[in-house]
Computed example of a mutant assay.
Amino acid sequence: MTMLLTSTGGADLWAQVTDRLHADPGSVPHGPGVVVVLAIVVAVVLVPTWWTLARVGVTVVHELGHGIVGTLCGRRFTGLVLRGDMSGHAVTVGRARGPGRILCTWSGYPAPAVVGAFSLHAAGGGWAAPVLAGTSAILLVSLVRVRSLYTAGVMLGLTAVTALLWWWAAPSWQGGVLLGTGAFLLVGAWKHLAAVLSQPGAGSDPAVLATLTPVPRWLWNASFLAVLAASSWWAARGLLGMG
């Protein structure tokens, strides 16, 4: 009898999990809701104090872009560090030069824009819950890579919030949060790229890429601009579909 109850409880839990991994038309933002979410994003980006606190989210996606692409290229993603000034770095181990190192280094600045545009389209398609679940899983796995208490605190907080939204939030809230997150990441990608263009440093991604290849720094920056522009165009199409 106990085994039967345990089995039934496990089946019920699994049913709840799978139910939360389906698309839900009720999560698609529409009309006034889209305007409200975008207004909040604009406020967060324009108010210096709010931006300073929130931009760590862009940094997390930037650094995970390095780590995930590096892993896909055969490198080992061994460390993730975030700093109090909202900067950070990802540590990958592998060949010092070659295509894998180049792709790993290049992927940071495009990552927030691509993820942001994808999030907007996922929100518009009703896929907020599955995306939140996948994001929670990625953040959870990334916890073993943290290399500082501050990084651990940020990553634990993001993991907990994302998981709670996936499990407990109403579909309309899930869609709104995903829409806002996507828009914020896209705008944040432009702000981060503008910062590296205005204050180029020897340790910046485009500078490192210029040392790894015969391609000059300005051309690497142009490649970032092209990806961000394409992502913005794709995101704009998604937003038009929510009107």
Rank of each mutant, 00 (worst) to 15 (best):
H192G: 13
G126N: 09
P99A: 05
I138D: 06
M3F: 00
L156C: 14
P216H: 05
G124Q: 00
G26R: 15
G67T: 03
G201W: 00
P32F: 02
G65I: 01
C104W: 01
Q16M: 14
N221H: 10
D85T: 08
G67C: 01
A152L: 15
T49A: 14
V17I: 15
T18N: 15
L185D: 01
L132V: 07
G201A: 09
A137K: 07
R97V: 10
S7F: 00
W51E: 14
H121M: 02
R76S: 15
R76M: 06
R95W: 02
L120Q: 09
A236G: 12
L219D: 08
V81S: 07
R55I: 04
I138H: 02
R145W: 01
G26P: 08
A183W: 05
R75L: 15
V227E: 02
L228C: 05
A222S: 13
A235Q: 03
L143H: 02
L228Y: 01
W14T: 14
P214F: 03
F184V: 12
V60E: 04
V131G: 07
L13T: 13
H89Q: 09
P216D: 09
T59K: 03
G180Y: 01
V42T: 13
A210K: 10
D12Q: 11
W190E: 11
A236V: 14
V131N: 05
F184Q: 11
Q199D: 14
S119M: 14
V115Y: 00
L185S: 03
V161T: 13
T78C: 06
S198C: 12
P110C: 10
G176A: 05
L193K: 08
V114I: 15
S223C: 11
A117D: 02
